Simulated scan of single mutants.
Amino acid sequence: MSVRLIVRMFSELCITVGALIVLFVVYVLFWTGVKAADATEGQIDTLRDRWAQGTVSAPVPHTSPTAAPPAPEAYRDGKPFAMLYIPRFGKGWEWPVLENTEVRTLQKGLGHYAGTARLGARGNFAVAGHRRTYGDPFKDFPKLRPGDALVLTDGATWFTYRIDKKPYRTVPSDIGVIDPVPRKSGFDGPGRYLTLTTCDPEWGSSHRLIAWAHLDATQPVTDGKPAAFHS
């Protein structure tokens, strides 16, 4: 085999590999975003249609002073049940929250850790989201600061949580960050908490970034948007 032929084959191989790399980058940077935009809009439309029809899951009224109130309807696996807004990330930032943190779920929006508290309830309402790819929902995660508002709605109530400290970096095995009382956050007793988690570094997954918040206020959606949208 001549040197010229070897050089030609090597050049063609480099071109092929380069083309594959370019296609992969386009897929990661562009196509996953397109897929996420379509999927996310679909989840948002589903929520808004449900709320417009008055089918928000809420406790059934009861009149007996001795009977325990009925349990709220369970979140449906893989289905949206709330919207999250983070003013720090911009006026147009809005993402649906779905039940569970499976790969296919996080391709449609944010995922609620099954087994953690319900929205607004006592305990720790924990949510995961992609840092990059599939819409880059938590791209600006490191910008979160103490006092920032995290505003959610289930269609009937607005829930405003407030960030307590700058994002905390840890390893994926540190599951204590979503405990009912996440003590590494500085919380030392039962309360109504919220935890956000995402990957770190920005294009990797060797670590996790965590943000903790506490429930600051609630109000009916009929009262309009909370002031936290402007804080």
Rank of each mutant, 00 (worst) to 15 (best):
K108E: 07
T63W: 03
W93Q: 09
P69G: 05
P61T: 11
I44P: 00
E99V: 01
E94N: 09
V17L: 15
L84H: 03
E94P: 00
V34I: 14
H62W: 03
F89Y: 11
L98C: 01
G115L: 05
A52D: 10
F30E: 09
A39S: 07
R104A: 07
V17I: 14
G33H: 14
P59F: 05
L110G: 03
G109H: 07
Y113R: 12
A37V: 05
R48I: 01
F24N: 14
D49A: 12
A52W: 00
A68H: 02
Y27G: 11
Y85N: 07
W51E: 08
P80I: 07
V56G: 02
F24L: 15
V17W: 02
P61Q: 08
V103S: 14
T66A: 05
G18W: 13
A74Q: 11
V22H: 05
M83H: 07
P59Y: 03
P65M: 09
P65K: 13
G54W: 11
H62F: 01
G42W: 08
Q43E: 14
A114E: 04
N100R: 15
D38Y: 05
V97D: 06
V25N: 12
F81K: 00
P69I: 13
A39T: 02
P65T: 08
A74K: 07
H62I: 06
R76H: 03
L98W: 01
P59N: 06
R48L: 08
P70D: 07
V97A: 09
